[in-house]
């Protein structure tokens, strides 16, 4: 699959997770650095009727963080959503959640326990292959209840049995303060849920096989009995991605947005 069509699929698949009735609807999604596909997915979900607050850290105009980038982390640390924003019945369900309830993280390496490595491989600090660095992951993974893991490259070098360095651990001992962790993982090949400490394969993207995904994955995972194909974007989703989503992304991710908006190949 060529790259623009794969990006349409990934945006649509992530957006569907944000609207999946099997999960509580997200209330406030924050999106950090260099995340055009998660940002596109959030805008798409909103365009299709999902109602959540969306705070983009790097938004060039109308940036919601009036205390600068520090505010993202303060916000994540601040505990429960204001009760006044919620109906009575929802308070219990959201108890213990932060003011931001969903955040996206990636990793140069992600392992089967959802540990993420943004440091690198080889001797510390990544003398073999250096990744950009951990950004806010070592904090956000603990403080935001629901983390969506997204890693486009799905190969034995990115999805590994055990990360070489831990930027942020997937799980913590019971006495470590932690509000949440990984909920799902989307890659260019497949979509997983994370449950009971391991990844669970939910769907394969068009053109992928179970054997192929197993070969491309360095960690063990369980497979849903009703393993499905990730549905390709509908005509409505494609249209919205090319128009409204591309226009929302244009100021922060101009190159990416112009690829989305380009006319489809004949």
């Amino acid at each position: 699959m060529n790259s623009p069509s794969r990006h349409f699929l990934l945006i649509a698949a992530l957006a569907r997770h944000l609207r999946d009735p099997a999960f509580p609807p997200p209330r406030h999604i924050a999106i950090g650095a260099a995340s055009p596909i998660p940002a596109g997915a959030a805008w798409l979900a909103r365009a299709m009727g999902a109602e959540f607050r969306l705070s983009l850290l790097h938004r060039r105009r109308g940036n919601p963080f009036t205390e600068g980038s520090r505010e993202l982390f303060d916000l994540a640390g601040q505990g429960r959503i204001d009760r006044f924003l919620l109906g009575g019945g929802e308070i219990e369900e959201l108890a213990g959640q932060g003011r931001i309830d969903m955040f996206f993280l990636g990793g140069g390496e992600i392992d089967g326990e959802a540990n993420i490595n943004l440091i690198g491989t080889g001797e510390w600090p990544g003398l073999e292959a250096r990744f950009p660095g951990s950004f806010g992951s070592a904090f956000m993974y603990f403080m935001v209840p629901r983390i969506v893991l997204f890693r486009e490259e799905h190969s034995p070098r990115t999805l590994v049995e055990r990360v070489q360095w831990v930027s942020a651990p997937g799980r913590s001992p019971a006495h470590h303060f932690r509000r949440g962790g990984a909920e799902v993982l989307l890659t260019s090949r497949a979509f997983f849920h994370f449950r009971e400490g391991g990844f669970h394969l939910i769907s394969l993207h068009p053109g992928e096989t179970l054997a192929g995904v197993q070969a491309a994955t360095g960690f063990r995972f369980t497979v849903a009995p009703d393993l499905a194909e990730t549905p390709p974007p509908t005509a409505e989703e494609l249209h919205l991605i090319r128009t409204e989503v591309a226009s929302r992304l244009a100021s922060d991710y101009p190159a990416f947005a112009s690829r989305l908006a380009a006319p489809p190949p004949l």
Partner: peptide, 26 residues
């Protein structure tokens, strides 16, 4: 990690020797 750098400066602006920060364990 990003909030640690903000925290180091927040401690300095308050004139205290350190500040605690959640997360990071492990």
């Amino acid at each position: 990690t990003c909030p640690a750098l903000h925290t180091a400066l927040q401690a300095a602006e308050k004139g205290v020797p350190f500040m605690p920060l959640r997360g990071i364990l492990g």
